[in-house]
């Protein structure tokens, strides 16, 4: 007796045809995922949109409709622009260094070497570490007087700045941590890219008498351009979403100098209880992320060389 016969026998359901049974099975299998998407992904989008036109502190029973006020506030809010600037500074400050170093390391690793896996694993290892814990480790490394980073700075004769309390140095401190955490990831992606370049391309160019630099300049770099582009976009989106490192190392301070986007959303919602404003900020985050993604797909079709 199969399942449908059993259910027919127990519940008195009519016997189902093969197709009906298939369709019901399909629906049953996708139901958990789709119900959860509905409740925790799509509903938040709709509800956020609604909340962004309201003023609410989550304590009074209902939100108050205020129209576009939250959006007007946002455009005039100097902290909002400061936060966007910080996010861009964090992304652009780390990405150039990350790309150059990661590509260099990937090129070195892309040869048969003893211990290749060990090097790769160690360099990649910071990527998946717990943000809160490594944030504390870096707070200690960046300690003005006793931190490890003072060693190379002393050697160069530079006085160690107050990394986490000087408005000019908080973002550079976060950039250092971001490079440390992201370099191995970028390297692994570049390495995969290098290995996917067909060897015949190099052979053909070599037959034509191309030197090593020329091979790199005219084959490797163009072939890696989609990957570089992907990594740049990933790092911008990553900077938009960073939270734990900032929350633990600086709390967005001093004077908003290290406040990043998600931290500002969190602060408005759960510290200042300005839920409507946090919702408007969330909508802007959604639009920005969507914009970047669309821009990426458009541009990578046109601009990137395969």
């Amino acid at each position: 007796m199969n399942a449908s016969q059993a259910s027919a026998a127990i519940f008195g359901f009519p016997r189902l045809t093969h197709y009906q049974r298939e369709r019901l099975t399909f629906l049953a299998l996708i139901a958990p995922n789709f119900i959860l998407f509905g409740v925790f992904t799509f509903w938040p989008l709709i509800y956020n949109f609604y909340l962004s036109f309201n003023k609410w502190n989550m304590i009074t029973p209902t939100p108050t409709w205020i129209g576009l006020d939250n959006y007007a506030t946002m455009i005039q809010d100097p902290i909002f622009w400061k936060v966007l600037g910080n996010t861009l500074y964090l992304a652009s400050g780390s990405i150039a260094i990350r790309l150059v170093l990661a590509l260099a390391l990937a090129l070195v690793l892309n040869q048969k070497l003893a211990g290749r896996d060990v090097y790769r694993a160690i360099i990649f290892s910071p990527t998946f570490t717990t943000g809160a814990a490594v944030a504390l480790v870096w707070t200690w490394i960046l300690h003005k007087n006793l931190g490890l980073l003072r060693l190379p700075l002393d050697l160069l004769g530079i006085a160690s700045p107050n990394w986490l309390t000087d408005v000019n140095w908080t973002i550079p401190a976060l950039i250092i941590v971001t490079i440390w955490r992201g370099l191995g990831y970028d390297m692994v992606i570049f390495l995969a890219g290098l290995q996917s370049i067909p060897a015949e391309l190099y052979e053909a160019a070599r037959v034509d008498g191309a030197g090593r630099w020329s091979l790199f300049r005219h084959i490797t770099l163009p072939m890696l351009s989609p990957i570089s582009f992907f990594l740049i976009v990933t790092s911008i989106i990553g900077a938009l979403q960073v939270f734990d490192i900032v929350a633990v190392m600086t709390g967005g301070g001093p004077m908003n100098s290290s406040k990043v986007y998600v931290y500002y959303v969190y602060e408005n919602a759960f510290k200042f209880f300005k839920v409507g404003y946090a919702a408007a900020l969330s909508m802007a985050l959604f639009v920005i992320t969507l914009g970047i993604t669309i821009f990426q797909t458009r541009l990578s079709r046109r601009w990137v060389h395969y």
Binding site: N33, A278, L285, T289, T293
Partner: peptide, 21 residues
């Protein structure tokens, strides 16, 4: 495609609604 579309929605924007839910 509906499944894939959920990947376009950043999880951070669900913080407040999910808290309320």
């Amino acid at each position: 495609l509906v499944v894939l579309a959920t990947m376009m929605i950043p999880g951070e924007m669900a913080l407040v609604p999910n808290y309320l839910t």
